[in-house]
């Protein structure tokens, strides 16, 4: 049971950091960015590159996050703005294409074998039968701290108000004298930065591979959608709930239902997210419905 708890905290944090970014972009641009999770992969590899160049882990991580944030704004200006002008469908296909391009480029540069960050070997702590590593504790604390910080920024600063104004009504924000372009830039930096943090934390905890982001795509979308897109709190709660569900499904002895003892094969772990996503989309699409286009 403790194992489920640890599992939920670690995986939930990773998903949550990505899901809030996805939700922010969706809120401000009304567009589902499939390439969002690739910012996590990019974060991991920038840390690999920078530590490889001899920088310390902490400095590499900070620089890596900054790099990814800047890259995100450049991509938005050069690419997404143009794609979005051709309509949401083209933008969605385009973001998928960008994701593939990023992944293929990384494979070209680094190969498809996983890379490890130079982390000091630390002894795991035995916590009521479950093994916790210090890096996992740091991962959860940093994530929760950043999520709390984000919530505070969005709630109490003028930037937060601007973001919420754009999210509430993308067309109107211009009129009320807000610089919409600036707000959107900042949202891209914020969400890509959080994604990079998530990627680096995950790389430290295990390793970084070209599929790091893609493997998180569906759980992250599931969390963002289940949380009711545009809702930061919803996305965070849904992320931890999803992680918990994934962990539980593997732990539960389904024998009670099918007879004998029967645990689901570990290979099906990702299926939980997919299934949850499909079921949620099919039966509880509130907040993510093709919201009645204004038929004025």
């Amino acid at each position: 049971m403790v194992e489920v708890l640890v599992d939920t905290a670690v995986r939930g944090s990773i998903i949550a950091l990505l899901a809030v970014g996805l939700t922010l972009i969706q809120g401000t641009l009304r567009f589902a960015n499939v390439a969002h999770v690739e910012f996590a992969t990019l974060g991991g590899y920038s840390a690999v590159a920078l530590t490889g160049a001899g920088l310390g882990l902490l400095l590499s991580s900070a620089l890596g996050v900054a790099l990814v944030a800047v890259l995100a704004v450049v991509l938005y200006r050069l690419l997404f703005r143009r794609l979005l002008r051709s309509g949401p469908m083209i933008a969605l296909i385009g973001s998928l294409a960008l994701a593939i391009v990023i992944r293929a480029t990384l494979q070209l540069l680094y190969g498809s074998r996983p890379r490890y960050l130079p982390t000091p070997l630390e002894r795991g702590i035995d916590f009521h039968g479950a093994l916790i590593t210090p890096s996992q504790i740091r991962l959860v604390c940093i994530s929760l701290g950043l999520l709390a910080l984000l919530a505070l920024v969005l709630k109490f600063t003028s930037l937060g108000r601007a973001v919420r104004a754009v999210a509430a009504n993308p067309e109107l924000a211009d009129v009320s004298g807000l610089n919409r372009g600036r707000v959107v830039d900042i949202v891209w930096m914020l969400s890509a930065g959080l994604a990079a943090v998530s990627g680096i934390l995950l790389s430290i905890d295990s390793a970084v591979g070209i599929e790091l982001g893609f493997n998180l795509l569906l759980p992250v979308f599931a969390a963002a959608i289940v949380g009711g897109l545009g809702s930061i709190a919803g996305a965070v709660i849904a992320a931890y709930a999803l992680a918990c569900a994934e962990s539980l499904v593997l732990q539960i002895d389904w024998g009670a239902i099918v007879g004998g003892t029967h645990h689901l094969e570990v290979g099906y772990r990702p299926a939980v997210g997919f299934a949850l996503l499909v079921v949620m989309l099919a039966f509880r699409p509130q907040g993510l419905m093709g919201r009645a286009v204004r038929r004025g």
Partner: peptide
């Protein structure tokens, strides 16, 4: 009931289920 982008994500999820 789905907006087109979530439908797209749902189809991706279904295909991954089939693969699993």
């Amino acid at each position: 009931t789905l907006a087109s982008d979530y439908w797209a994500i749902a189809t991706l999820a279904l295909a991954e289920l089939v693969r699993l």
